[in-house]
């Protein structure tokens, strides 16, 4: 192989190597940009929250479970209101109504925070650029912990009461305590049950005799025929 054709060969290979490498780079830039809506047309909306629960600029916005945008900025308006602005894909604009509501959620148990837009009743028409939608304060972990604390306190009180009641029963106080713990009561109950047994046996014998009696025989027969 001559020197010139060898040089031509490696130049072609080098050119292909550089071109493919650059193509991969541009494809990566394009797809990363697309994932962040850098190349798609967007419009801006906002919502005011009392507590953003750690939401950050760049977090995703979802509507009906679909990724439709990203948080563009978060700024404090007053000590109890925080303005969250977001960029939403223009293709979703027609589906989001003016009465849609924004909530802060998270992607899985440990995932990033995200803003979820719930659809409204759709009576007020689609949302416009720079509109502000209502927000629903999400339950934070602190709220859950506070409720869990109250529940635990209540459970504690209930178990204390149950312990007192079982103590009373054990010592034979009250009706249930007597029922379980009093020996005389148990003996009386036993005797009563024996008497009831005896009484029901006597009653059964009387009924058998009545069936055979001349005066009542007809009445029993009528009843049998009806059946």
């Amino acid at each position: 192989m001559s020197n010139q054709s060898k040089e031509y060969g490696y130049s072609v290979k080098l050119g292909a190597f550089i071109l493919v490498g650059l193509a991969i780079l541009f494809a990566a830039i394009f797809f990363v940009g697309q994932a962040r809506q850098l190349f798609s047309k967007t419009f801006s909306i906002s919502a005011v929250f009392k507590d953003v629960n750690g939401l950050q600029a760049g977090n995703n916005v979802r509507f009906g479970g679909m990724h439709i945008g990203a948080i563009s900025s978060i700024e404090m308006l007053t000590d109890t209101s925080i303005l969250v602005s977001m960029d939403i894909e223009s293709s979703s604009q027609q589906f989001i109504s003016k009465d849609a509501k924004a909530t802060i959620g998270s992607d899985g148990l440990m995932g990033n925070k995200l803003l979820i837009i719930s659809p409204g009743k759709g009576t007020q028409g689609p949302i416009a650029d720079k509109d502000q939608i209502a927000s629903v304060q999400a339950i934070s972990m602190d709220d859950i912990m506070e409720k869990l604390y109250v529940t635990t306190e209540n459970a504690n009180l209930i178990t204390t009461d149950l312990a007192t009641i079982s103590g009373s029963i054990r010592s034979g106080n009250g009706t249930i305590g007597k029922l379980f713990m009093d020996k005389d009561f148990a003996e009386n109950l036993d005797k009563t049950l024996i008497n009831v047994k005896k009484g029901s046996k006597g009653f059964s014998e009387n009924m058998e005799a009545a069936k055979k009696s001349f005066f009542l025989k007809g009445a029993f027969k009528k009843d049998k025929d009806k059946k």
Binding site: Y10, S11, L14
Partner: peptide, 13 residues
């Protein structure tokens, strides 16, 4: 430089 690019880049790929 192009030759070295070929040797360093393409040949190391």
């Amino acid at each position: 430089t192009a030759k070295q690019c070929y040797l360093i880049g393409y040949k190391t790929l």
